[in-house]
C-alpha cells in the first residue's frame, strides 16, 4: 500500500528546522553573469532529499526499489510539491519521471484508451481521441484546477494521489480503468476497483509506480452527465456525480454511476446503476435514486460542508446528471438513426 503523506516522519512537522545542515545555504554559481551572482539564499521550505531525473522506466523502478520505501515519484508535482513544501512528505529521494521518453502519449488500443504517466491535464483536455470517444472525460477536465496547474499536473499523478475529491480517480473508476504498475519485480495490472484504498491511499506497493492507465472508450450513442459543486471554479468538489448510459428500446442500458467528494475514496454505486438499468428516466425514478443515495452515502462533515449538506447535494447533482445523460443519449441515438 502507498500512503501519500508522512512517508518517513509522519505528519505535523510542517515548520522549518533551524538545525538543517543547509539552513544558511549559498548557491555557487558557475559562469553566471556578474549581475546575477548567487547570494545567501536563506531558508528552504522542503526538507533535504536526493533527486534523480530517470531517463527510463527501468531506471526509475530500480531507484524506487533501492530507496526501500523512502522514495517518491514526482510527475507534475502539483499535489506532491505542496506537501513537500509543508514537510508533510519528506522523501529520501525524489525520482522524476518527466524525462522518460514515450510516457507522454494518449493511444487507442481497441476499445480502450491508454494514457501515459506524463500526459498532462492540458493534453487530456484538448485530445481529439478523448473528445470523440470519451466526451464525459473532456467535460470533467474543465473542473480540474486552473490553466497553469493543468499545464503541469498529470492524469496518472492525480489517480496515484487518490484525493477523494478529485475528478480523475472517479473517472478512472467509472471507465473501468486498469492501472499498469511497474517495479523491478515486473509489471502488474490493477483494476481501478482495487486501487483506491482510502483518502490519499492506493494499493500500489512501495516499490511500484504507474507507467500508464487504460480506460474504456464509450459507444458513440452513449449519453453522459457530469455535475460538480465546488465553492469556486477549479476548487476541489464538495460533491460530484458522473454518469453514462445508452438508450436501447426506450430504456437505459449500460448504466454507470460514479461519485466523489462524499467518501474516503471515489465511488461506483452498483445499487444505483441497477435501479436505473432497464428503466426510462422519469420524475419517480429520479426521486427513487435520491432517496436511495441518502442511505448509501456516508460523507464527512468538515470545514467545507456538513454531511447532511453533502447528502442533499448528492441527490440534486444526481438528478441533474441523469437528466443530462438521458437527454444526450436521446440526441445521439437520433443522430445515429438518421
Amino acid at each position: 500500500m502507498q500512503v501519500n503523506f508522512g512517508v518517513r516522519h509522519g505528519i505535523g512537522e510542517a515548520g522549518r528546522s533551524r538545525d538543517d545542515k543547509a539552513f544558511r545555504y549559498a548557491a555557487r554559481g558557475r559562469a553566471m553573469p556578474a549581475s546575477a551572482l548567487a547570494t545567501d539564499v536563506g531558508e528552504m521550505k522542503p526538507a533535504p532529499f536526493d533527486y534523480l531525473a530517470a531517463t527510463s522506466a527501468s531506471e526509475a523502478a530500480e531507484a524506487l526499489a533501492a530507496a526501500n520505501g523512502d522514495g517518491k515519484i514526482i510527475a507534475g508535482g502539483q499535489s506532491l510539491m505542496p506537501m513537500i513544501n509543508f514537510r508533510l512528505v519528506k522523501p529520501a529521494i525524489l525520482i522524476d519521471i518527466n524525462r522518460i521518453a514515450g510516457l507522454d502519449r494518449i493511444e487507442k488500443h481497441g476499445e480502450r484508451l491508454r494514457i501515459g504517466a506524463t500526459v498532462r491535464h492540458r493534453m487530456t483536455a484538448t485530445d481529439a481521441l478523448v473528445h470523440r470517444h470519451i466526451p464525459i472525460l473532456h467535460d470533467a477536465m474543465h473542473h480540474v484546477a486552473h490553466l497553469t496547474v493543468r499545464n503541469r499536473g498529470t492524469f496518472c499523478g492525480s489517480v496515484c494521489h487518490a484525493d477523494p475529491a478529485a475528478e480523475m480517480p472517479m473517472m478512472t473508476l467509472l471507465l473501468n480503468g486498469t492501472i499498469a504498475a511497474l517495479s523491478i519485480r515486473g509489471e502488474r495490472q490493477i483494476a481501478a476497483s482495487d486501487f483506491f484504498v482510502g483518502s490519499l491511499m492506493t494499493s500500489l506497493e512501495p516499490d511500484e509506480f504507474v507507467t500508464s492507465i487504460e480506460i474504456d472508450t464509450l459507444p458513440l450513442d452513449t449519453g453522459w452527465g457530469f455535475e460538480e459543486f465546488s465553492r469556486r471554479h477549479g476548487d476541489f468538489a464538495l460533491a460530484c456525480v458522473a454518469t453514462t448510459l445508452r438508450i436501447v428500446d426506450g430504456v437505459a442500458r449500460d448504466v454507470r454511476f460514479g461519485m466523489m467528494g462524499v467518501g474516503e475514496t471515489p465511488l461506483r454505486l452498483p445499487e444505483i446503476e441497477a435501479r436505473i438499468e432497464g428503466q426510462a428516466i422519469s420524475q419517480a425514478l429520479l426521486q427513487d435514486v435520491t432517496e436511495a443515495l441518502k442511505g448509501l452515502l456516508h460523507p464527512n462533515t468538515d470545514i467545507h460542508a456538513s454531511a447532511d449538506y453533502r447528502r442533499h447535494l448528492a441527490g440534486t447533482l444526481a438528478r441533474r446528471a441523469l437528466r443530462d445523460a438521458w437527454r444526450r443519449a436521446t440526441l445521439r441515438k437520433d443522430a445515429a438513426d438518421a
Binding site: A27, A36, V41, M44, K45, P48, Y51
Partner: peptide, 14 residues
C-alpha cells in the same frame, strides 16, 4: 545560467 544547487531548492527561490 549554470549553477550548482541543492535538489530541494524551489525554482521560485532559485
Amino acid at each position: 545560467h549554470t549553477a550548482t544547487v541543492e535538489p530541494r531548492m524551489l525554482l521560485s527561490d532559485f
